[in-house]
Design a protein around this nucleic acid. Structure first.
Lengths: 329, 329
DNA sequence: TTGTACGCGTTATCAA
DNA sequence: TTGATAACGCGTACAA
């Protein structure tokens, strides 16, 4: 040991790996590291992994399917013990995922769950989250509520749309196809569809955005069209787009516990890697989102409906507390 | 080859590494991955690395020196070919860096350059950046300009303070110790010192923040004390804190080309790894920052000085173009 | 061109 | 307990 110090010796982890057939390494495939939501998720996963002596390798795919394929291949070559995966929008093609699985590398999907393939997954309860949020808008008196969806080939986008429809239906409002705009989770789309909505003759009194990135685009549209919020329109979004700043308007949002999602996913993956959980069936962990009511949903339509359960708008000050999501069951 | 496909075969990169004594892997040590500036930097480095067939492993240190030591040790064990390093605030202790270097692993420092050890580095020209920005405030008519510095044990924090002082001196303004507040690049400090400044009897007419994170804290202080910007005070910051949104006020900032910094650092590191650059002396790459003039510096003090080079405030609309930094030489 | 043996640094096995 | 030795999967050098 003394000699080791003297010689500035460091054991070779790669030689060790070759021998023991483990790398104590987890791969994390992310679509966009500059998205604060994912960045936070990485921290959760990394903290959990490091605590259990695993190294976490994070790689971006930039939402590109071919890059995802390439990355998965690299990770296989590197013999990572398991993979945390945020899938890029794929046209139902999961062959690369399947072949990685076949190579004996466990995969846990995060946030987005691809349809058509059985995978472990960790995400937020999308249905409940958007249902609670849209319900909040309805309680404010809105009835013409638009939604800009994500890519509907992803389960989470579907779930958020579903929650929107559920909330409307339970309030006796029939979903209007004119108010359901199909987006894709990208900034430019939030801008384009948002502008389209805002320039309509009969524009909705409230808009629900399916993720934080599209909300950034929507804000641009809002500003360009000269509409004010909460003066002219209300809106709310899935994802809490920014760290709470003093910027105006503060945005009502369905906040996802990003750090916890990452940590839970890493935890589950390590269980799989170590064979501590029976592989029989797939595990789906759903965490609770939290509705943060802020200024952007403070606008109340001029002709509110006289409904018995109507709730007057709460205070909209900057330091107003957040409200825990109410369960629908 | 056909058989390889058939058997779902993937060559073992670790066995290969053991043989060729290379891992084709670069380590990237970051203090905070949730900071958008670093996130962007990672993308630049990753893109560059991947393009040259290197894998990039990114790890957080949370600004903790002991974690930095541990991470460097892990990276050594993993036999990474080189390391990109954003140092945590260290009390002048660079022993772990030196021993990594001694083990034959090249290191390129990014953003922050530790004093007291000769290292390759890539960063922005801190002096010029803050000098240009403070000069801009002076041109707006400000003379009582405060600065909240970073940890002065870091070269970049020193440089930014130096640029501030240079700008004042060239305008014939004597730096006032009362207006130089020693910070540490952290949000809470921006809040605390900002509040202190804003509540002073004789408060400055403008404030220069040494980084984006502290600016977030400053905004909180601004809001809590009820001061308005650009109504009551002007401010500007090093770092462009957020992706350009429509939030108000838009912040005048010294934007650093984060992506390019990351890419340049990776490029230089790979040169070192491949021995394509003579190791004789240390290389320091300095990129040009860009001053983005926006709303937050629009406030003009009531008693502007009648100086010949005084420039009236420009338009402060949201879509105003940015202005390239003017060189001081 | 095709084949064979050895080395890379570590762990694991088996014998002493 | 200690010490020698065979794997681990791939390059590489040398022989056929």
């Amino acid at each position: 040991m003394d000699a080791a110090k003297d010689l500035n010796y460091n054991p070779s982890h790669i030689a060790r790996s070759l021998s023991v057939k483990r790398t104590d390494t987890l791969g994390m495939v992310i679509t966009d590291i500059t998205n604060p939501f994912f960045a936070q998720m990485i921290r959760g996963a990394e903290d959990c992994a490091l605590k259990q002596e695993y190294l976490l390798i994070t790689i971006n795919t930039n939402e590109q399917l071919d890059r995802e394929r390439q990355v998965l291949s690299v990770l296989r070559s590197r013999r990572v013990d398991g993979i945390l995966l945020v899938v890029a929008p794929n046209g139902g093609d999961a062959s690369h995922i399947r072949s990685t699985l076949d190579a004996g590398i466990p995969i846990v999907c995060i946030d987005r769950v691809p349809s058509g393939i059985a995978l472990d997954s960790v995400s937020v309860d999308n249905v409940k989250g958007s249902q609670t949020c849209v319900r909040h808008l309805i309680e404010r008196g809105h009835r013409r509520i638009a939604i800009i969806t994500g890519s509907l080939s992803l389960e989470n986008a579907k779930g958020r749309l579903q929650g929107y429809e559920l909330a409307l239906r339970e309030a006796g409002i029939k979903p209007d196809p004119e108010l359901i705009l199909k987006g894709d989770f990208r900034e430019a789309t939030g801008y384009r569809l948002g502008k389209e909505l805002l320039l309509r003759q009969e524009r909705p009194t409230a808009v629900f955005l399916s993720n934080g990135v599209m909300t950034m685009g929507f804000l641009r549209a809002l500003y360009e069209t000269g509409r004010s919020c909460p003066g002219d329109i209300a809106f709310a979004t899935f994802d809490d787009p920014q760290p709470p700043t003093i910027f105006r308007p503060q945005i009502t949002a369905v906040a996802q516990p990003a750090y916890e999602i990452g940590a839970a996913a890493a935890e589950l993956l390590i269980q799989r890697v170590q064979g501590k959980v029976k592989l029989a069936k797939r595990i789906a962990i759903r965490l609770e989102p939290e509705l943060k009511i802020r200024e952007s949903s403070a606008f109340v339509p001029r002709e509110p409906l006289a409904q018995s359960h109507l709730i007057p708008p709460r205070g909209t000050g900057p330091h107003q507390g957040s409200e825990r999501v109410r369960h629908s069951d």
